[in-house]
Write a protein that binds this DNA or RNA. Structure first.
Lengths: 170, 170
DNA sequence: TTGGAATGTCAACAAGGCTGACTTATGCTG
DNA sequence: CAGCATAAGTCAGCCTTGTTGACATTCCAA
């Protein structure tokens, strides 16, 4: 672990373990791990004239079918213009369907088509495979800690969104 | 935890806890947490005509002073043209210094100037503050698990780079 | 019924990735 | 020493994906 201080055991309540060096290692771990996290889907997408933004849209439409554009916007944290460009190509290519709202005709509800679902599967299979390998290698306790820290790192708004998705998802 | 299966306890060696739903939650946690992770430095940088790419360069030059351009390239995983654009503005603005190598004059060794160090401090203070809060909230065991999973998620090359930085850093 | 709010679209621009082609300076090896 | 390899930098041009601004449509409430 090579942290230059004590408190390396697992049971310590010590508050001294948060040296700048330890925090910096966490920061770098996040950076390098995120690269791995996105690498596999990126590889698939690069052959398809799509990018990471398309992946994100497809992921969350699959996760919450029938979501409105506005809702998707707040999940993704981009401007509606930015999302729209991505969405348009997905609709043109027949991966996403946009249905006018029944009660409020201003709204568009988004669904994956069969082709869209198929791509979603391909992408998330790749990502899950890596995730599964990492989880297996690290073990259940590490996974629990991993999730706890990630959640604590989110902005409150994002944490709320994250929880809402979890409720609907299971 | 509401995962629809058993194996929710912490001590299980069960291999059944890796449902697609659990993995997807991990994926979403990564996504939302990374947003939080970059939010604070991004805010500082947006007022300064710099972006995330500048932050990364500054971070790793600070971490490994005297690094060559080539070495920085392999850490960041971008092309030299892409890095060069960023590096040029940092040098022009007097945040980074580029010294011709003493033994091999083809190489350029990169250092932060005082102004560069100052900005680095501002940026990493912001990022560390969030990290520290998350670590505190999650506790030492969770932090250990967090790091273990992140490391398992990296590509082997990145893991090697990550370890090399840790050795030099401590 | 009319004005404001919400929703979605179009256009233009910037950051920061990428490839490809090339130059310059230097190191190394036959 | 000649010639190839390596490190760095530059120019040009492309793509994705973020941004703002302007605008059309729709809903709802005063």
């Amino acid at each position: 672990m090579a942290d230059g201080h004590g408190a390396s055991g697992h049971g310590g309540e010590s508050l001294l373990y948060l040296t700048d060096e330890q925090l910096r290692q966490g920061i770098e771990a996040m950076f390098f791990a995120y690269r791995g996290f996105t690498a596999d889907p990126d590889r698939i997408l690069s052959g398809l004239a799509y990018g990471r933004a398309h992946h994100r849209a497809i992921h969350f439409i699959n996760r919450a079918p029938g979501t409105t554009v506005n809702n998707l916007l707040s999940i993704l944290g981009v401007t509606k213009q930015s999302l729209n460009r991505v969405l348009r190509t997905l609709i043109e290519d027949g991966l996403v369907e946009s249905r006018v709202g029944r009660t409020d005709k201003r709204e568009r509800h988004l669904y994956l088509t069969d082709a869209g679902s198929e791509l979603e599967q391909r992408l998330s299979d790749a990502q899950r495979t890596r995730m599964r390998a990492a989880y297996r290698a690290a073990g259940p306790e590490a996974v629990a800690g991993f999730r706890t820290v990630l959640e604590a790192m989110m902005d409150p708004d994002m944490r709320r969104t994250y929880h809402k998705l979890r409720e609907s998802g299971t």
